[in-house]
Design a protein around this nucleic acid. Sequence first.
DNA 1: ATTATGCATGTATCCCAGAG
DNA 2: CTCTGGGATACATGCATAAT
Length: 560
Amino acid sequence: MWSSGYLLIAKKCAWALGGQREGSELNMCIPLCFQLKCNMLALCVFWFLLWSHVVGAPKKQLEPAERLWVQLQKDSKETKKKAGKTVGNRLTKLYKENKLPASDVSELLQAADEAGLEFSNPIPKKRKFEPGKAPELGEAEPEEGCRDKNAARSLDRFLRKNHTWKDLYWAKIPMKNPKKKANDMEEKWMPFLLPHEWLPDYFLQSSPWQEGMPEEGSFCWPAGKFPRARHEPGKAALAQIRSDWDWNCKYFHAPQWNEQKGMCWLCKAKPENWREMTTCPAWERQEQSLDKAEYLHFLADREKEANPLFILPSASNDTMVPDWMHVLDEGTGALAAVQILKELLPLYPGAHVDERVSQLWEHIQILYEEQHWPQDKRLKKLTLKDIVKPKKVPELDGKAHEVRHLCPLLECLCKAKGLHEGSVHQKAVYKVAKYCSKMYKCLEEGNLLELEKAGRKFVSQYMALEAEATSADESEVKLWRSKPKFHVTSHILDLVSLGHNPKHSWNYRDETFAGCMQKLSFRRGGKFEPGMAAEKLLLRWMADIPFLHFAAAIQLFQEP
DNA sequence: ATTATGCATGTATCCCAGAG
DNA sequence: CTCTGGGATACATGCATAAT
C-alpha cells in the first residue's frame, strides 16, 4: 500500500544497486566528455582566430602591456572552466538546501549548460522544452510548455545517487495523523541514519560541526556489544537532552524565572531572595538545593505533572544541567558586555553619539586585528541601537559565539580608556570587565580553578554595581540590573568547582539546527507521507555534507 | 470579514518503452 | 535485468476571485 515498502526492499538489496551505479555514471560521463571536447575545440578555434588577427597583422606594433593582455586571456580558459564548475556546484547546492523548487534549478542548470559551462550536471542533456523560448504555437503564452515536468524526479534521482553515506535504514514506526480526528495510531515507514554506522566516522572529522559538538573525550560508546548488522537490536543509553529554559519549562515543568513558589529547578531560590542565593558561598546554595523528591513535591505543589522520564532512577532535576551558551553568552555575558560598552561610549571623541559609536567600533576592530581574531568569530556590526535602547535594558545583537569572543576584549577596551584609574564607579565597571574577560579566557584555556574564581568575582561585582546604581538614582535602575540568569551562572560555577567543564555540556548547535531542518523539510507539493518528507530531508542533508569513511580507511590501513 | 472555489504551479509515484 | 526518460495521474499549496 505504501510505496515506502517498496523502497525498503530496494534499499535492503544493496547488491542490486551496486552494478548499475557505475554504469549510470558512465552514461552521464559520455555525453559530458563529448560536449567538453566540442567546447574545447570551439575555444581553440576562437583563440586561434583572435591570435592570428592580432599577431598576424604586422602593421600594428604591439605594446608589451597589450601582449600581456592577450596572454592573460589565453590563461582564462582554465579560469573559465573552474568558474563553470563553481556555478554548477552552487546551483546544485541551491537545490540541496531546498532554496529553489526543482523546476527552477533544472531551468538554471540547463541554461548554464547551454552557456558552455562544464560541470557534473544532474539534468539530462537531451530535452524537448526550451526555457524562456516561446514555442511556435503562439506569442500569447510564451511560457507554455517551457517547464520540465520531471525536474523534481531527475534531481531526486541525483540526490539518491550522489552521496557518500550508507543507504537509509527503513523501519515501521507507529505514528499519529494530526489531520484525523480518531486517536488511533498508524504504522508508517520512516527512514533513519543508524547512529552506530556514522557516529564513529563523524567524530573523526574536524571542522564543520566542531563548534557545536561536545569537547573531545566527553563522548564515548557505552561499554557493551557493538551492533554487527543493521537490523541487530542494540541497546542505547539516553545520555543527553538539549534544551533551553523555555524547553525546560514546557517539557520538564521547570519553574519560570518569576514564579513565586520558586524560580530555580536546582535550589529553593525565590524571586525575593535569589540575589542573596546568587552571591552566597557555594555551600550555602548546596544546603538549599532541591533533591529529586523535593523537586517532585515542588511540581505537585504547582499542580504540574512530572515528565515520564523522571521514572528513570538517574533522571532528576540536577541532571538538567544549565548550559554556558544560553546562560552566559546569551544572558549575563552579553548583558555585562553591552553595559560596559555603554559606559565607555561617552569617553570616545565625537560631537554626536553615532560618531562615538563608530569610534568605539573602530577600536574593537583594531583589537580584533591585533589579536588576529578569525573573521567568523568577530562581531559583525555595532550600531547605536545595539547599545542604547530608550527605556529598555540594552541588548547586544550578536550570535552567541561572537559574544563569547568579544568578552575577552572588554578589559583591553576599558584599560585603553583609563577606567581602571577613574572614579569609584568607573573602577567598579572596570572590575566587571576584567573578571568577565578573565572568565572567558580561562574557559578557552580550560583552567577550571581560575574560571570559577573569576566567575564568582564577575557575578558579585556585577551585583554590587546593581546595588550602587539602585541606591544612587531611582531613574537609572535600568542600567546594571541583574537578571535571574546570574543565579544560574552561580550554579554553573558550582558545577565548575566540582570539576565540570562547561564546554562538555554547552549547546551551540541547537539555535540554528531547528531553523535549518525547517528549511530543508519545506515541501512544495506532492502527496504527503511522513516517511517521504523525512527521507527528502535526510537525502538533502546527506548530499550537502559529504560523509568521509575514516574508520573504514583506518581499518584498511591497519589490517594488511 | 471570512470562507469556498478555480487556477497555476509543483511534487510523488506509477506505467511504459528503449538502451545497455 | 536495471536504469533512464517521457507521459499520465493524483495530490499539495498559494493566490486571486467569488460566495457567504
